[in-house]
Amino acid sequence: MTSTDQLPTPAVSIQGMQKFYGSFHALKNIDLTVEKGEKLVICGPSGSGKSTMIRCINRLEEHDGGRITVLGTELNDDVGNIDGIRREVGMVFQHFNLFPHMTVLENCVLAPMLVRKIPRAQAEAAAMRYLEKVRIPEQARKYPGQLSGGQQQRVAIARSLCMEPEILLFDEPTSALDPEMIAEVLDVMVSLASDGMTMICVTHEMGFARRVADRVIFMDAGEIVEMADPETFFGDPKNERTKKFLSQILGH
């Protein structure tokens, strides 16, 4: 600890990470460091490995080479480390993945009660606070199936927040939503960012990236092709593949 006093531990540090699916090389030699409080946006064409990369950070996928360190703990075969990291890293999924057999409130209090051993009353109070933060406290007693897509995704964000994570991962949080619902989810994400949460977002919402991101990463074919602050990234991209991608996605 003493030697790293000057340098605070980064939220996530990835060095030389490799990932294979059979013989397919999905992630090639990824190096990435995310500081605490930083907002990172990752974009790239489908199949470029961006989802795989952030799913490696909380071990939904197992990496095959290199090192991943999250909040100073290395992600390896140690079960205790994996559990510890998952407690501190929240994730929001493309398809929400709310538990359909539980009410919104139960969805929110389940993990804090089981994992953090927080008493129910306290967990419910916290859950209501976060539901208010995502602006749907009135839906607490409903079941996920009774909500719209945008509402469900906001509940999913609240559910992650209830674990009071240090880092939040977003895996294309708005891709499965109807256009009119994207804004309400993005608003919540923007307000989270202003609270100082460490966020790693895979998204194609370039407006959001411009407004919120500290850095934007472009991935293609399992590699980080370009990494820059949003101004440079959108204003003056260096790589040809980035330019092509941006022209396709912003072209219309």
Partner: peptide, 11 residues
């Protein structure tokens, strides 16, 4: 206990 915490060993 460290050995037991290792996922591969456990499997």
């Amino acid at each position: 206990s460290n050995l037991w915490r290792n996922q591969k060993v456990r499997n």
